[in-house]
Design a binder for these strands. Structure first.
Lengths: 112, 112
DNA sequence: ACTATATACCTAGTCATTCAAGGTATTGCG
DNA sequence: CGCAATACCTTGAATGACTAGGTATATAGT
């Protein structure tokens, strides 16, 4: 039967990831903690969310992965490439649309 | 095993419904079209989303349902009661938390 | 009279996203 | 040595949202 479009509010984890990686390259475990920090605990995405998204973005060619060894620990650093930057743009626009849509709903008077 | 918390971004359809019903009583089919209208097409929830949410909110005691006959057509009008108003408050607060969390992430400088 | 469109309700089945909960391995601390 | 933190990962279940149907009445066109 019909396949589903992605749920209308999904892609926020992706948005957050891409946004942070746009600023500087980071590794997965770092992103998990950084998201909690940056959002003031409002959003807390576990490793079970972050890693799969990271992998799918890499497979998709939006991210570049680089293994680095630091203090005997292996980290996988991710950074945006052109495709990722485009994807970030698209998701950001979409987010604004949704956000202002909801805001509008909350400011709607008796309506027309 | 562990039961899951609801996904962190869910409850937006509910939020929209409750908000609109707070302003005036409406029926399902109306809500479908009203949401599209009010959000400027940004959000479009089908009947397959609206009706189940409406039913679950009613079962939960957040909404009151009233059958009315208009022009030979039967409509089910829903309105908020005390429990629904409380639920609206909670969802609204939660939404603001998430929204400003994401905004914060986008204004985060090089970070701390 | 027939047909199509709009209104108005509803549900079943499928899919994607998210979640909790594990598993592996290394480092550093008490 | 044991425990917590770091750092990677995956599996399986729960949940929500989507498509796609189905029923029935009214209205407008042909």
């Amino acid at each position: 039967m019909g396949q589903s479009n992605p749920p209308f509010m999904s892609g926020v984890p992706e948005l957050l990831l891409l946004r942070l990686l746009e600023q500087q390259e980071m590794y997965g475990y770092e992103l998990v903690k950084r998201i909690r920090l940056v959002t003031g605990e409002a959003i807390s995405l576990g490793e079970g969310v972050i890693y799969p998204v990271l992998h799918s973005l890499e497979r998709n060619g939006a991210l570049r992965a680089r293994r680095k060894k630091v203090d005997g620990r292996t980290r996988v650093y991710y950074s945006l490439n052109a495709k990722g930057r485009k994807r970030l743009d698209r998701l950001q626009t979409e987010w604004h649309r949704i956000q202002s849509g909801i805001t509008a709903a909350f400011e709607a008077p008796g309506n027309a």
